[in-house]
Design a protein around this nucleic acid. Structure first.
Lengths: 269, 269
DNA sequence: CTTGACTCTCCCGTAACGGGAGGCGGTAAG
DNA sequence: CTTACCGCCTCCCGTTACGGGAGAGTCAAG
């Protein structure tokens, strides 16, 4: 016969857990001293205790274990219960794998933002971009009315989104009122969406510039970029792209002074 | 401005959850009517609410989300936090995969026991068994002293066990006192264990018989099996094997009348 | 004015224990 | 014999992220 402390050291269960299992009727002490209330466990209980430890490790609830122990003889039921439990465990495993993948995407996006933040000192860069599959809604109007369109698009694309949202500008010169633009979001696989077009942006070498600050100041950065294009004597293809690396709609609304927008101008080769 | 019910329908969060987030300072209503206590949410809060939903789906705790939102500007910290979280998520994913595998083994063993139970009507069967890697402790003595040996073996092999324990009998005739036997347990991969030998049982065609009942009655089943061997005029190889499909030590102590033990007699070819 | 739908606060419950207070029992040292 | 200490007991509260429900007040329509 062991006291609860000894039994605890033998089985690895805490004293608290042993008392709890006693209360729940899961693992009864062999005898209890009527005077002192001390619990005593026979050596034969060790095996049961270890079985309980194992079942707990397998994520059975205390109630389930109590049921299993009670109906230990009814083999058919037992198998059913085991298989049901396996289902829920598998579902959890899948869920966590999925969360892991989603977190990975989130983290890599965040990392991108950080590096963009560090290089966003109004420096130009030439990037050679791979082809990019996007879903988009093209329209005519004023740029600043794009908000609701992004809302629509997000709802349509949902979890298929594979990157930050962007705007594609098809005009060859700046227009305030009747601009021809498309709100778009990268996707991983071709989808069929009604109300949104899925198409591929061709690979391109781009002159890029990361704009830091509120959207009202985008004009300055555009001016700088176009000046650089002019200085180099190159020509640009349409559509040009605006990538909203960090803005109000990405995940959190932050300080507009820290918004990051990457401007991409495809160069004619 | 939306009432809490409208906001709930828009965001998919329950009213209870919204009130809870209010209490926790996670998602404050835009304004609260001083008289009535009614909460009102501006449309601009929808985005934050959806972000919170997403972060909750990614298994961030409410406290973590509050922290993230508070220190949203401190990008380095944020990445660290994300990566720490990713670690724990990955650990959970691995844990559940492992549990799934262990449950699978448990279930398939249980299934084996069940089919053995159904065919255990003293029927013989010829099985062709693949080679089997085991860890064992060989000794001389009385069969009934094998209990502590199984204890030792289990502790040494631990989680590498890949099936029910067994006993190998090397004697060519029955001995009570000075038997030459080995307690063994299947393992998946070769291990180095001190105090236990790892070796491979060769593939063999066996005459098998499942004994149902307490171990004291094993003698009857042995007699039947040996009679059958004699009738067929075949010879048997050593060691013969006793597989403890269901007994006191497997997982639960059950009714000895339902113990299952498979006897395997390798036939000389 | 009534009615029904909505909202408020407050309290309890969940699962599986952990932490701690306050008290009892046994033992060893001073 | 007292004191100190260790182990055990019971009882109560705390954890997480809400859900359920009671009892009371509020809003908008008919």
């Amino acid at each position: 016969m062991f006291t609860i402390g000894e039994f605890s050291r033998i089985t690895g269960l805490t004293v608290k857990a042993l008392r709890f299992y006693h209360d729940e009727g899961l693992l009864l002490p062999t005898c209890v001293d009527e005077q002192t209330g001390y619990r005593y466990y026979a050596e034969s209980k060790v095996e049961l205790a270890l079985a309980i430890v194992e079942l707990r490790r397998l994520e059975f609830s205390v109630q389930q274990i109590a049921d299993l122990l009670a109906r230990i003889d009814d083999d058919a039921d037992l198998l059913d219960e085991l298989e049901r439990h396996k289902q829920t465990i598998d579902a959890e495993a899948r869920r966590f794998r999925r969360i892991g993948r989603d977190l990975d995407r989130f983290i890599s996006h965040q990392r991108e933002v950080r590096t963009a933040m560090q290089t966003a000192t109004l420096e130009f860069a030439d990037k050679s971009l791979p082809p990019l599959l996007v879903a988009g809604i093209r329209t005519r109007g004023r740029y600043r009315d794009c908000g609701p369109l992004f809302g629509q698009l997000c709802r349509k694309v949902g979890r298929h989104a594979a990157g930050p949202p962007m705007m594609l500008c098809y005009d060859t010169e700046f227009r305030e009122d009747d601009a021809d633009f498309e709100v778009a979001v990268p996707i991983r696989k071709p989808l069929v969406l009604d109300g949104a077009a899925v198409h591929e942006l061709p690979a391109a070498t781009c002159l890029t510039l990361v704009h830091r600050g509120p959207y009202e100041d985008l004009g300055n950065s555009y001016a700088k970029a176009l000046a650089e294009v002019h200085r180099r004597g190159v020509e640009i293809d349409r559509p040009t792209r605006e990538i909203y690396l960090k803005g109000p709609g990405i995940f959190f609304r932050g300080n507009p002074k820290k918004y990051l927008t990457e401007l991409q101008f495809p160069l004619k080769s």
